[in-house]
């Protein structure tokens, strides 16, 4: 628990790369575009294109691949389950049968597609979190969601809450640690018993934590008011987000990639016949 506060949020990897310098809004849009493309693509050349794009995206970010793969560990189980279920439960032409277990041709196809999609999706979006600080990410979201203010969505307030939450996570973690130790010193037991008992044992931890969080919130609100905070109206920024040439170039590249991924990925030019003369994947 003592190490909790050392966890870096959003797993930012400091480095000096083109991707790091890109406007955070570009990175959010590119990530979303890439994710959408993965669900549009359904041909092998299309996946090769996506792989090329992803390779470029990762290489340019200068984040070591092993860092990226470490992030994959946590989703490995999900990946494994997806593959297993798709492999055995897709009906179709039998490839291998093993008593009641049947692997179909369609099963293999869908399982590998899902695996590739998931891996690409996670790698693609982790480039964004590896190269963008949480603050810049919140700024980007505030800016990208600004049109929603017309629909009375409190965009600035949501962004402010997000950044305050990020600021207070390490503080509250430290506090949790302190309260836990204080309660353990009074004989509280957080480790034994079944799951329900353990959940109940958390009450002496959660109650003081909540009280303290409310007190902090109250103090912070007062401090913000004392520093003339009055919402987004008339507010300026020290470092406003400004698009540079490289950002426009990145948008162009994304557009090119999206067009190609529809053309190739949807097989509009019937390229798959080159790979599978028999017709289709």
């Amino acid at each position: 628990m003592a190490m909790l506060k050392d966890i870096t949020l959003g797993q930012y990897y400091p480095a000096d790369s083109v991707i790091h310098r890109l406007d955070p809004r570009v990175k959010v849009v590119v990530t979303l575009g890439f994710i959408v493309s993965l669900f549009v693509i359904s041909t092998i050349p299309g996946y090769l294109l996506a792989a090329l794009f992803l390779w470029l995206w990762i290489r340019l970010s200068r984040v070591p691949l092993r860092f990226m793969l470490r992030g994959m560990k946590s989703v490995f189980f999900l990946l494994f389950m997806t593959v297993v279920f798709n492999l055995f439960l897709t009906p179709g032409e039998t490839l291998i049968s093993w008593g009641k277990l049947v692997i179909t041709k369609e099963g293999v196809r869908i399982a590998s597609l899902m695996a590739i999609r998931l891996v690409f999706l996670i790698l693609g979006s982790s480039v964004m979190t590896f190269t963008t600080t949480p603050t810049r990410l919140t700024d980007a979201l505030e800016s990208l969601m600004r049109p929603l203010t017309r629909l009375h969505v409190p965009v600035h307030e949501i962004a402010m809450m997000m950044s305050i939450a990020l600021r207070f996570i390490p503080i509250l973690m430290e506090e949790t640690d302190k309260i836990m130790k204080a309660q353990m010193a009074r004989g509280a037991d957080f480790e034994s018993g079944n799951i329900i008992k353990r959940a109940k044992n958390l009450i002496p931890l959660l109650v003081p934590l909540f009280i303290s969080a409310f007190r902090r919130a109250n103090d912070l609100a007062m401090a913000m008011e004392a520093r003339c905070y009055h919402g987004s109206e008339g507010r300026t920024r020290m470092k406003p987000l400004v698009y540079a040439r490289r950002d426009r170039a990145a948008y162009l590249l994304l557009l090119l990639y999206l067009v190609l991924s529809v053309v190739i990925g949807r097989d509009l030019l019937h390229l798959s016949s080159l790979f599978f003369p028999g017709g289709g994947v």
């Binding site: 600080t133 603050t135 305050i164 990020l166 600021r167 401090a223 520093r227 003339c228 920024r237 020290m238």
Partner: peptide, 16 residues
């Protein structure tokens, strides 16, 4: 302290 970086926090008042 509102900002996640020192200079960001100091800028909070002038920004407001």
């Amino acid at each position: 302290i509102i900002g996640q970086i020192v200079e960001e926090d100091v800028a909070f008042g002038p920004e407001n």
